[in-house]
Nucleic acid binder design. Structure first.
Length: 446
DNA sequence: TCTGGGGTCCTAGGACCC
DNA sequence: TCTGGGGTCCTAGGACCC
């Protein structure tokens, strides 16, 4: 626990709605609601004028319309939001290099990682920061909290919201937390709050009467231990400015449920393409493709499958997603369909090898799915050995899936050589071989 | 007129390996 | 013949966050 209030949390007030009001003077002073404007949309952000009518984030747009019919309903202009966000993040980086954005409108800053941090000058620093944000963004306002921890900084930025700030003096954390509703603690949402309610916990101070092991029994080891610490204001989480992406996904909720398999197939292809393009644009590749479907009753299911090595190839990702969809019951129709990729690798940084590590450099996987395989094959196979000689060098079985076996080769020039894919029924891979697997074998729908 | 889209993290069971 | 223990990977689902 750090001894000074040196973690800052900044939150832009009603961000999307405020950008709209800034850019369209006719909307100023009026209720503005940004979100999905279709039949099944939800509210992203409501201006403070709209909040007076009870409109909240995540509320269905239908309910928002009934509560505040005269509001302006907008679908959002994300380029404008990104531009405003970039200005604010840039300003935060002048305070310290340790800036951790949580979303377009929120970030933590570790002030102690900046140059010549003076704890005594925090009030002036905050005032100057908030004034700069409003000036640089031409009218947006921010709320700011500063505290000895992330937990308290984030809570503090809410206290004087909107357009205010609060600094938590070290040592005052527990007094501040005690009367607050339990849901102020990070990770306590509706489901956890309901369980805690059952044992008489509604405020943060109520947690103090329970031992860690009681909380672990109730919530599981991670959530229980975390709540035990955070409720006492104990929080050592660091501000981290370089968090790596773990997944990329695209999904779409349909205006009405879609039953037709052919139509769903085309949508699945398009969704997989979108995901693959975003993956490539981010300079990444991934191993695991996940299909997500939601039924009319809102139940949600996922099906996933992994490749032996990362790919960023659209056709491979499309083929894998299709296979997953083909194996999925769409009986009563789908409300939502999505395609995601995880198990990401940094394609750009590892350029030389990554190109060759693509398990499907020639789109062989997809062609095989289309029953038109033309895989290259090694000339020789030495049963029972870890390495077999081949035309291109020495290779070994590297993974299997989708009725195919992936063989990776060493060449004279590179330790990690090209990958070739054979059909599983290739005579060179007949049973009886002691299979030399020098890498965890993936399973792709076999 | 119910319930978006982009993510993260955790849990749990089974496979597999040593 | 009645059976371990730990570690890791994979998959599926759920809670949570903005």
């Amino acid at each position: 626990m750090r001894p000074t209030a040196s973690i800052l949390h900044l939150d832009l007030d009603a961000f999307f709605a405020s950008v709209e009001q800034r850019d369209k003077p006719s909307l100023r002073g009026k209720p503005v609601i940004v979100g999905g404007i279709g039949q099944r949309g939800v509210v992203s952000t409501a201006s403070y004028e709209a909040r007076r009518y009870g409109v909240r984030s995540a509320m269905s747009m239908a309910e928002a319309r009934s509560r505040c019919p005269h509001a302006a309903f907008l679908s959002g202009r994300f380029d404008a939001y990104r531009a405003a966000s970039a200005i604010v993040m840039e300003r935060l980086r002048r305070l310290s290099p340790a800036v951790e954005p949580l979303s377009l409108d929120e970030a933590f800053v570790d002030l102690a990682a900046g140059e010549a941090f003076d704890p005594g000058a925090v009030p002036e620093l905050v005032a100057e920061l908030r004034a700069d944000v409003t000036r640089l963004t031409e009218g947006l306002t921010a709320s700011v909290g500063v505290a000895p921890s992330k937990l308290m900084a984030k809570i503090a930025s809410e206290i004087e919201k909107p357009d205010g700030s609060f600094i938590v003096a070290p040592g005052t954390e527990k007094d501040l937390l005690e009367p607050m509703p339990i849901t102020v603690i990070a990770g306590v949402g509706p489901a956890t709050a309901a369980r805690l309610h059952h044992v008489g916990i509604t405020r943060v101070g109520d947690v103090w009467r329970h031992t860690e092991s009681e909380l672990v029994d109730l919530l599981g080891s991670a959530a229980g231990a975390s709540l035990h610490r955070l409720s006492r204001g104990i929080d050592d989480r660091a501000v981290s400015s370089h968090r790596e992406n773990k997944s990329v996904s695209s999904e779409d909720t349909f205006e009405t449920d879609i039953v037709d398999r052919t139509e769903l197939g085309l949508i699945c292809d398009a969704m997989a393409r979108r995901t693959a393009e975003r993956l490539r644009r981010a300079g990444l590749s991934g191993r695991t493709v996940t299909l997500k479907v939601r039924y009319h009753d809102f139940s949600t299911h996922t099906r996933s499958t992994s490749l032996p090595a990362p790919t960023d190839q659209t056709r491979t990702i499309v083929a894998m997603a299709r296979r997953l969809l083909d194996a999925t019951d769409v009986g009563g129709g789908l409300r939502l369909l999505g395609v995601g990729i995880s198990g990401l690798a940094d394609w750009v940084q590892d350029d030389l090898f990554a190109q060759e590590a693509d398990p499907d450099p020639d789109g062989v996987l997809e062609e095989a799915v289309d029953e038109t395989p033309e895989p290259q094959r090694p000339r020789e196979w030495s049963p029972g050995m870890d390495v077999h000689h081949a035309e291109h060098g020495d290779g070994w079985v590297w993974g299997r899936g989708m009725g195919l076996v992936t063989v990776r080769f060493e060449t004279r020039h590179t330790p990690i050589g090209p990958v070739r894919t054979l059909r599983a029924d290739d005579p060179d891979l007949a049973p009886g071989h002691q299979e030399p697997v020098s890498h965890p074998a993936g399973t792709v729908g076999e």
